[in-house]
Amino acid sequence: MFSLDTIVQGLLLGGLYALFAAGLSLVFGIMRLVNLAHGDLIVLGAYLILGLGTVTGMNPFVAALIAMPLMFGLGWLLQTRLLNRVLGEDILPPLLVTFGLSVVIQNGLLAAFTADSRKLAAGPVESASVAIGPVHMGVMPVLTLATAVAVILGLNLLFYRTALGRAFRATSDDAVTAQLMGIRPQRIFAMATGIALVVAAIAALYLGTRANFDPSIGPARLLYAFEAVIIGGLGSLWGTLAGGVVIGLAQTMGAAVNPEWQILAGHVAFVLILMVRPRGLFPRAID
C-alpha cells in the first residue's frame, strides 16, 4: 500500500522529530518538567544561528557550533534563575511559567525579526542526494537522522557511563535520597537544561536548513516533540527516537493517502498508541 520511498521518507522525518524531542525527553525524564517553551527555544536557536551567520558570514554548521555553548548558558540561567523556583509537587506553576516564557520568546522574536520567513543557507549540500537501490534520499535528511541517532547515543553514554549521568538517574529516581548522597539537585537540573538546549541548538540547525521558519512555528514543533517523548515512554531516550520515527512515519503515510491528512495522521497515531499503552512504549522511570 505504501511505497518503500514513503517509508524511508517517514523514517528520515522521524529523525528530525527525535532531535526536537531529545532535549525535552532529558528534562522531562530527570525533573518531570513540562517545558512548553521548548519549541520556541529551538526557534530562538535557529535565529541565533541565522544572526551569527549573517554577522560573520560563516556557514550555519560552524555557526551552530558557536551557538551551542551560548544555548547551554541560556539553559543554565533559565533553570537556576527561573525554573528551579517553581519545580515541585504541583505541576501547574512550571507549566504556566514555561507557557508564559513561550509567549514572551515568540513575541520577542516577532518584534526583533518580524514575521518574515527565514531560512539557513547551508550551500550545495542542501540539494545533494544519494541513491540506495530504488530510493533517492536527500543528504540533509540522512544527515538529520544520523545526527539524531548520534545525539541519542551520546546522551545515553552520558546517562549510563558518567558520574554526571549517575547523578541524573539518581535525582530522577529519588531527589531527596540523592541529596543525602551529596548531590545538589538544583545544579543537576541546571546541567540537564543546559544540555537540553545544546541539543535544541542542533535541532535548530536542521530545522532552519530543512525549511522556512518564522517566530510562530515553535508550538507546533513542540507538540510533535512531546508526542515523540510520550510515545517513547518517560525517561527512555531510545524510546524518544522510536516515538519520533512513529510520528514521522504516520505523517508521511497520511500524506501519501491525502496531503491534507499529514499532521492529522501523526496526532491520530499518538492517540491510538496511548489508548493501548498509556505510559508509552518503553517507560524507564515511574511518573
Binding site: 527561573l82 504556566l96 511559567v97 507557557f99 508564559g100 516564557l101 513561550s102 509567549v103 514572551v104 515568540q106 513575541n107 520577542g108 518584534a111
Partner: peptide, 10 residues
C-alpha cells in the same frame, strides 16, 4: 502587549 502579559503571568 503579549510580552508584558507573559512576564506578568511568570
Amino acid at each position: 502587549y503579549l510580552i508584558v502579559l507573559g512576564l506578568f503571568g511568570i
